[in-house]
Nucleic acid binder design. Structure first.
Lengths: 343, 343
DNA sequence: TTGTAAGCGTTATCAT
DNA sequence: ATGATAACGCTTACAA
């Protein structure tokens, strides 16, 4: 375990080459294309590298090769478990590849997103994954100049920057509301928090579904820009009951709110679904084991993250997918909480 | 918005210098130490950079300066909301600094941790944050060679690699069990999942507390290496009831399990806390708004992430903290679910 | 299969 | 305050 000392104190590829008695470039090739080396040299370089504890310098590699193996990822929240799932998909997929992930948290701010994009610019990432379709003009301009494959995730829409993986939140909101209507509920409330672009599109789906059935009433709607908590679900539900005591069902824009509503109903001894139907969104794991089990809209978040990485890495390698926009869809998980009394 | 084209197609500092009619190094100084420039040149460089849309190349900077502004972070899970909170603290703190975060997910595997540490080695991070104190021998060796400030987070223990921010999971487990004993419960169960090192230390605290009170009984213990879900909480609780029908209270090693127990009790019409007391761990937000509100152990996760970054960045700048080991403690949040019937 | 030479874009060093 | 020159550690030509 002797240690070569160079000016900088680091073991360089040159040190490995020297010990292995090969040229620098041969040592370099051992890492990029070992098959091109003769067996003897390959073994000598390998053992020399191990003996010296050589670790390649990524900065030097990036500078010389003019490319990195970094995929930049921009998500709006670290707390929201929706994004934990997406991230898990992203990290799982990246581990099967040679790419590493550089993560940025925009906190639901498109200005912060723009800022982080500028940071990413200096890293020269090989690919990019951004959340949603509501970038600023400046962000779009930056994305254009970065000329690397880009995936927008979480939702799909017109005018993709490059690739897209997601689903229609409008359709999902419409489907959730339609389900309640189909069950025969007439006075259907909406509880919304944070009201980010995707939440707003779910909301729009709800509004249109109710309007189509001539059941729309602004009194049924309670929203807040505040971020989501379970406790908030209870509070918003209390507000809703206050302004529309005859409400029969609630569509909560996410499952945390739905859980809060469940607890509030338990507190008030409101029977679910007999006196109040509940539908959530995201289908977090606890929805199925709640009492009663809660209806929700399942999206393929893990898959979304995984696909985004797969698409981006494939595109980096020159294999651009046939379909640039991938709709992963959603699935209404109908459970006891939204089954009509009369059924 | 004209665009300079160089061999590589990128705008280099040299292009900025040329346009500003200063030397390369003067342009460089504009970014590292603008105060050292005369006003005239400063303005010329600034406008030239803006005009060309210059973006510094981090790889070149890292290579030339022999340092980066990357802090590597290794956590065991992206799904566990405990780590979302820690991460939020980490990212929030990093945004106030000039450092960016490089995240790795070890999935509770110390071998994966070792692997990721090797990846980090090639990036030459300026600082490192790792989870827990159970690194492999090889990992410890790698950490030693990276000579950068390192913070171990989540728990504290003997023999820190460098710095530490966390709390004693043993003490917390002991405190939770002691609380139930103090309330007069005699047959106190333990529900555990995933059984990572910190969970095991909480378990050890529980065991010792019960033994000290001569209330320990292996029949009261149900654990599984499986990862945690709310549903699993219900299942484990059912197992516990089967093997110890006379159980009076349960200490769940995390809040998801506790929520699962709550639901299972609701399903079985078991009154909380009259027939069954529940204590969870982590104090996730929903614990306070459950029906009844659930007792839990609160840890300062967000602070933990934030402090780790603060300590590491301070150390990078040469300001090593007085106290290398910081105990952030924990707090028993006593709520209705664990108040004894006889009180 | 192997090697030589010339960068990659920036900062450190040493002058002036 | 400003500049010339030599690194930094690696890869991409191109050559043999």
């Amino acid at each position: 375990m002797e240690r070569k000392r160079t000016k900088s104190g680091n073991i360089r590829l040159a040190d490995v080459a020297e010990l292995a008695e090969v040229s620098l470039i041969t040592a370099s090739r051992f890492f990029s294309n070992p098959g091109a080396l003769s067996v003897g040299k390959r073994e000598r370089v390998e053992s020399a590298a191990k003996q010296l504890g050589y670790v390649p310098n990524l900065a030097a590699r990036a500078l010389a090769s003019q490319r990195t193996e970094i995929i930049g990822v921009l998500i709006p929240s670290l707390t929201n478990s929706v994004f934990s799932d997406v991230l898990r998909g992203i990290y799982d997929a990246s581990e099967g590849s040679r790419y590493s992930i550089q993560l940025g948290n925009t906190r639901y701010s498109i200005l912060q997103e723009e800022k982080l994009l500028r940071v990413f610019q200096s890293q020269r990432p090989a690919g990019l994954i951004v959340t949603g379709i509501n970038q600023t003009e400046a962000s779009r301009a930056i994305l254009q100049t970065m000329n690397c494959p880009i995936a927008q995730i979480m939702e799909i829409g017109p005018d993709p920057v490059d690739m897209m993986v997601g689903f229609s939140h409008y359709d999902a909101g419409f489907a959730a509301a339609s389900h309640l209507l189909a069950q025969g509920f007439q006075r259907i409330g909406f509880l919304g928090a944070r009201m980010d672009p995707r939440v707003q599109r779910r909301f729009a789906g709800y509004v249109d579904a109710l309007k189509a059935a001539s059941r729309f009433d602004p009194r049924y709607i309670v929203t807040t820009p505040t971020s989501t908590t379970v406790t908030l679900g209870g509070t918003l539900f209390a507000d809703l009951l206050a302004q529309a005591p005859d409400i029969e069902a609630v569509f909560c824009v996410n499952d945390d709110l739905a859980l809060g509503v469940l607890f509030e109903c338990q507190r008030r001894h409101i029977q679910i679904p007999e006196q109040m139907a509940i539908v959530g969104f995201n289908d977090l794991e606890f929805m199925a084991s709640a009492v009663p089990p809660l209806t929700s809209v399942r999206s393929n978040r893990y898959e979304m993250g995984k696909s985004a990485v797969t698409m981006v890495t494939a595109a980096i390698d020159g294999f651009r997918p046939q379909e640039l926009v991938v709709d992963l869809g959603f699935k209404l998980m109908i459970r006891h909480s939204s089954i009509a009394r009369r059924n």
